[in-house]
């Protein structure tokens, strides 16, 4: 029971962290960056690379964040900025393109499809928490998901910079009039989402292994969590992510594992029928 719950929370934490990445770029540019799952998977592979070279964890994290920020900046420059003012969902094509490129580069550089990612922390294999078994990496994942989503949630709601950043998505022109440098803000947001995605590699990897095929899966699950929680809300991402993770494992444990997707879909539709804007999304009134 506790083992199952902790597994679900850790799984949900991964989804949450993908959704937080989505929100960062959504809030500033109104684009859904489908490469987000790719960032995370690239991070897991790079973690293995760093471990091979025996880098300490601090250096590994720094390196990953720098790599992520660079990749995201390149993505923004070539795949997002040129299409920023279009309203025809072109970003779905270009960001899927970026996701494909990331997968292609990993396949090119890594000989193996699946790699084990060692956890940097204690050498103990599993911990006993409340009578359940959980790996240290999973505890970290849950902790990080809570801290990152809540702090960014607070930041976007209660700081001038955060409000300005999230204000960008409502009306780029108004933000420009207010003197906010929208171009730089968008850049920074993308780089932050890239740095976040990559730097999570050492924490996600020990749970999921480094697997190329995981990238698309994480992007899709994160997308569902984003909608359930409410687009733009990191608090929603946290609640939605943990809920989806727990539903998946409990359905698999107590019912039929193949119903996982169906169960998540049912919850999704129910939430949407009751609150179309998502659990913590903001209702925007239509003006007649």
């Amino acid at each position: 029971m506790i083992t199952t719950l902790l597994s679900g929370l850790a799984l949900g934490a991964v989804y949450t962290l993908v959704a937080v990445g989505y929100n960062l770029t959504w809030l500033t540019t109104r684009t859904v960056n489908f490469a987000q799952g790719g960032f995370m998977v690239a991070g897991t592979f790079l973690t293995v690379w760093c471990q091979h070279r025996g880098y300490p964890i601090a250096l590994t994290l720094l390196f990953l964040a720098a790599a992520g920020a660079t990749v995201a900046a390149v993505e923004f420059t070539f795949a997002i900025r040129p299409i920023l003012n279009r309203s025809d969902h072109t970003e779905l094509v270009t960001t899927v393109g970026v996701l494909t490129v990331i997968q292609g580069v990993i396949l090119l550089l890594s000989k193996e499809d699946v790699l084990r990612v060692r956890f940097f922390g204690s050498s103990r294999e599993l911990l006993d928490v409340l009578g359940g078994k959980v790996s240290p990496a999973e505890i970290w994942l849950i902790f990080l998901a809570v801290v990152i989503s809540l702090s960014t949630h607070w930041w976007t709601r209660h700081t001038r910079l955060g409000l300005a950043a999230s204000g960008l998505s409502d009306d780029r022109e108004a933000a420009m009039l207010l003197g906010v440098n929208t171009g730089r803000f968008s850049y920074v947001a993308f780089m932050a989402s890239g740095a976040l995605g990559f730097a999570l590699g050492p924490f996600v990897g020990p749970k999921t292994f480094a697997v190329v095929a995981l990238a698309a899966l994480l992007s899709i699950k994160g997308f569902v969590v984003l909608a359930v929680g409410g687009v733009g809300s990191n608090l929603g991402a946290l609640v939605g992510g943990l809920a989806v993770g727990c539903i998946e494992v409990f359905v698999a444990r107590n019912l039929e594992s193949t119903w996982q997707n169906g169960a998540v879909f049912l919850v999704f539709i129910s939430v949407m029928l009751l609150r179309p804007q998502g659990l913590f999304g903001e209702q925007r009134e239509r003006v007649v």
Binding site: S7, T208, L214, V249, F250
Partner: peptide, 15 residues
């Protein structure tokens, strides 16, 4: 059976 798109099979192995 476990779903192919899952990343954690703990509940299935518990079962």
């Amino acid at each position: 059976r476990f779903p192919t798109d899952a990343v954690d099979f703990t509940p299935i192995l518990q079962k």
